[in-house]
Amino acid sequence: MNGEFLQAIEQICKEKGIEKETLLEAIEAALVSAYKKNFGTAQNVRVNMDRDTGAIKVFALKNVVEEVDDEFMEISLQDAMKISPNYTLDDMVEIEVTPKNFGRIAAQNAKQVVVQRIREAERMIVYEQYLEKENEVISGIVQRIEKNNIFIGLDRTEGILPANEQMPNEAYHVNDRIKVYITEVRKTTKGPQITLSRTHPNLVKRLFEMEVPEIVNGQVIIKSIAREAGSRTKIAVFSPNKDIDCVGACVGQRGIRVQQVVDELNGEKIDIIKWNDNPKEYIANSLSPAKVLDVVVDEEDKAARIVVPDNQLSLAIGKEGQNARLAAKLTGWKIDIKSQSQYESYIDNKEL
């Protein structure tokens, strides 16, 4: 333990972003434990490392008393005054007890502490790096599959894609490169725990942001997303600039932009609809690709009755009710769909 050791500590602290004094205090605390363990003592001790030379000294701390009951913890006033005439009762006396061979033990323990603190610092750096990326999309490589959980290799760490965050129509294989959405970053003793998703609606949002510059610069705004992962997504968009076709911007020339998102989502169908502050128009748009004849809204209950042509009823409802369900999720309105003949019959019966 010498000046070169301190220089090495200083260099490590700069590279790893660790406070030098914090590291030295941790080394001193570890050396206290090492001293007690190796020399079988119950003494109250303090270890001091000289900040300039690296020299290490061990001091026994003893309380000044009139009569000594515990020689490890106490010293008589008479003996204390031999060290310094200024000591009085209840003072704490420090007596150097540095063993001759303590340097080797100190070096070994100091190395362990430094390695441990470096690991902790690196874990903290990775944690903070990914905490900033929470709610963002990143690329990763499938590393392994354990108990239906997929472990994704990321830069300097790995994340977990739980079974409930995996798309039902996807098969995952080791070395596959995929885009994932970071839902949560938690600090643990083993480093950051990063939870990923392929099913989150915001994955679709972030993918569109990557493909559509107008979304990034604020010319097109994503107002709402409703998703049944692996099957279908509806996304409502709006532009504050009347000269911009918000749906066309998201679709892209010959559909290239939306196709990039569809490909990344393994063929998931995407309906891009125009948001409108008029509930009737917005709800009608939300049922795309079905054509809507009329929308009757109940503002108080936020419920809407939609009338579609007879040949469009199954399209409006969708397979197993999916289209209607997603439209309701997207708009936040309860939706009841009727064919034109059903609605006319309903009106006639009501009049009767």
Rank of each mutant, 00 (worst) to 15 (best):
E25R: 13
V97I: 12
I270T: 01
N202V: 04
A26R: 01
K350V: 11
D176L: 01
I56L: 07
E209H: 07
M210S: 14
K82W: 09
N164R: 11
T157N: 07
S139N: 13
D91E: 08
I273C: 06
R117K: 14
Q43T: 10
Q143L: 12
Y35C: 05
V185L: 03
R46L: 08
R198I: 04
S288K: 04
F151M: 05
R117S: 07
Q166L: 05
E281V: 11
A229V: 03
N86C: 13
Q253S: 10
S139A: 11
E158T: 02
D271L: 07
S288N: 11
L203C: 07
V65E: 05
I270V: 08
T98M: 00
D348R: 15
P213G: 11
V185P: 01
D155C: 09
K334Q: 13
Q43R: 10
G321C: 01
E228A: 09
T233R: 01
E214A: 09
Q43H: 09
D243M: 12
R198M: 06
A316L: 03
I56T: 07
R305E: 14
A328Y: 00
F59E: 11
E67V: 14
E228W: 02
E344G: 07
K20Y: 14
E351A: 15
D301R: 15
V185H: 00
K37L: 10
E320L: 12
L207A: 02
S288I: 06
R104F: 09
I194S: 03
P309E: 05
E71G: 10
D348P: 10
E320P: 08
K187T: 00
F39H: 11
V292Q: 05
V307Q: 01
I150A: 02
S33L: 10
V262Y: 08
K334L: 08
E67Q: 15
D348I: 15
V295C: 00
L196R: 04
I75R: 00
L293K: 15
V64F: 03
I306R: 03
S139K: 13
N109G: 07
S286N: 04
E132Y: 11
A236M: 00
A226Q: 09
A30K: 04
C246L: 01
I225Q: 02
V237I: 03
A60S: 13
I75A: 02
A316K: 00
L315A: 10
Y172M: 05
A106G: 10
R198E: 06
K57G: 12
V204G: 07
N169C: 12
N135S: 13
E214G: 05
N149T: 07
E136A: 11
S314M: 10
I182R: 00
